[in-house]
Nucleic acid binder design. Structure first.
Lengths: 331, 331
DNA sequence: CTTGGCAGTCGATAGCATCGACTGCCAAGC
DNA sequence: GCTTGGCAGTCGATGCTATCGACTGCCAAG
């Protein structure tokens, strides 16, 4: 563990580097509040901190920069979750008081809100339906060979899938299949566990099987909304880095599994290479689950450079996840 | 109008500039096929082309660069819609043969496809429901004070809105409201023209009014899917330009009205400042409507730098819009 | 009207000196 | 023994200058 003086020095380095994005020299640290030794002493201490892996030197004769390990120590021991400032707090309150409409739009807007609050990119995953149960299943015919199945869940989420088949099916059969599906699925959860029981009617069973297939496949659960990607251009100098970050963020499944993985490991902050997604090695991710009826169902997160403002990001993520969960719960 | 030689020179300049992104000098043009005069002659011609506004010079002693007007002439007179090369064509075919699931996911994937095809950013707007009619309306209660209204349209699009009210409403009333709404809305189109007729029951009418309000407001029509934004970092040198482009693309309503405006003016290509959105002045946009049952209902488009590969973008946009329309029509 | 030649322009590149912000080390001091 | 001021040394950043190279416009000859 680090002694008090090393701790103070590390804190000063991280704070200043986050603010200025420039390597921090011993002189600057000496001038920081809470550090009352000369720059020479600090030089000695910083050399030790470097050896122990908390700091790094871009090149000889440059100041020090925090390593991932340095940020980790800072986040774990030198920063407590702050409150959001008043103007931002009311922004959040107003947002959730006024948001209406389809859930997708609300999540999309939430990602924009979070990005506005932090000026980093924001990630919002859609509610995982694990605990939600099916409230209603409806089969709506579009033509003699096509239909849409609409499933409404207890959390208000609406899933829809298109169906097609080759031979004409009578309206009666479609309607029967709808009734049969409703009977078999209402009260269960998505994706469906097993097939609904056979009905005895061939056509009906074929329709049911197709519905089952469509609902089993890529579920809307994996939807993710990423807002504020433009901020990445501000966070990084090198275009090449920005490009690969943007490209990575466009792969929904990567983002989803990344966020899920962090939460599974019980973390709320993943710093730099910790999350293991190579193109995002220069980024940190601050995440928080949101709860509906006591169950964690989704995630909000902030993605910024490793030298991001962690306290603010933590505060924003906390408030937004709490409000979002509450907003989705009271139904 | 330009004579043959000027035309050939302009073509050569545009082609080479699109390929190399470097100002084109008279020497290069002289070596281009179809131009059989000396570089001195070309210099004279290029001076005229500059005076007439087709070319510009970044600075004295540099080559020429096409202006928006130059690109416009190139697009209008020097390029015919090509075919997509075979591998890309099969990529498109396979994509539309295999795409399933919710329509939103399909549109999102389409934007990615189009971006892959062209290596520019791609825009897909969701089908405008102007001609679609309501097939089914369902009111699904979630609690005693909340419900979801689900509307399925003849084109397979599914709209959902959440409702909340303060005083408990009986299941009977909700169910009655659902039936009443279905009776009043099925066969009409969204957004609803007028209120559904009063039913005589106060609670039912209040629910109907709320549904009406929610459906009238921001309709899902305005959804837009933008894919491949990462390509913008490759297209432009200046980070500042990339930032403002990305930021603009995040404003859905700007993108939607931009695309709509271009089509309203009967264009398929908007070059540089032509579209009037200042942050995108360095970009061109190639768009095509897609048709469902003979009606233009949505748009696909490609957004790239003004020095984009227009023939390829045009071909890609044509093929994708055609296939997408067909895919959405056969239902 | 076209063309080769030529002087002139101007950004890009490279070499070089300077500057400034650091560090590590050391010897003196508390 | 820890701390400190001093000092030599390192190295990127900055700015200057010379050079280079790719152009252009102009002109006189064909």
């Amino acid at each position: 563990m680090l002694d008090d003086r090393k701790t103070a020095i590390l804190r000063a380095v991280v704070r200043e580097y986050i603010e200025t994005a420039q390597p921090v020299g011993s002189g600057h640290v000496a001038r920081a509040p809470g550090v009352n030794v000369s720059s020479a002493t600090i030089r000695n201490e910083m050399a030790v901190l470097e050896q122990e892996g908390y700091l790094a030197q871009p090149h000889t004769s440059a100041g020090r920069v925090p390593t991932d390990k340095g940020y980790r120590f800072y986040v774990d021991h030198l920063t407590e979750r702050g409150r959001l400032d008043d103007s931002r707090a009311t922004e959040v309150r107003q947002f959730f008081a006024s948001t209406h409409g389809a859930i997708e739009q609300m999540l999309r807007d939430t990602s924009r809100l979070l990005s506005d609050l932090t000026s980093y990119a924001a990630i919002v995953t859609s509610p995982h339906a694990t605990r939600a149960t099916v409230r209603s299943v409806q089969l709506v015919p579009l033509s003699s060979r096509q239909a849409v199945v609409v499933v409404v869940q207890s959390n208000g989420a609406v899933e829809n899938r298109q169906l097609e088949w080759d031979d004409d099916a009578s309206d009666v059969a479609v309607s029967a299949a709808g009734t049969h599906l409703a009977a078999g699925l209402v009260g269960t959860s998505l994706p469906p566990e097993g097939m609904v029981a056979p009905s005895g009617d061939d056509t009906v069973d074929r329709l049911c099987a197709q519905v089952h297939r469509r609902l089993s496949g890529s579920s809307g659960d994996d939807d993710v909304y990423v807002g504020g990607v433009a901020t990445m251009t501000r966070a990084f100098e090198a275009v090449e880095v920005v490009r690969s970050i943007l490209h990575t963020l466009e792969q929904q499944y990567i983002v989803v599994s990344l966020v899920r993985d962090i939460l599974d490991r019980g973390l709320s902050v993943a710093i730099g290479a910790e999350h293991g997604v190579e193109p995002l090695a220069a980024c940190s991710l601050v995440v928080a689950p949101y709860f509906v009826e006591g169950e964690p169902v989704g995630t909000v997160g902030v993605l910024g450079p490793t030298r991001m403002d962690y306290p603010r990001a933590l505060a924003a993520v906390d408030v937004v996840s709490e409000r979002l969960g509450r907003r989705l719960s009271d139904r």
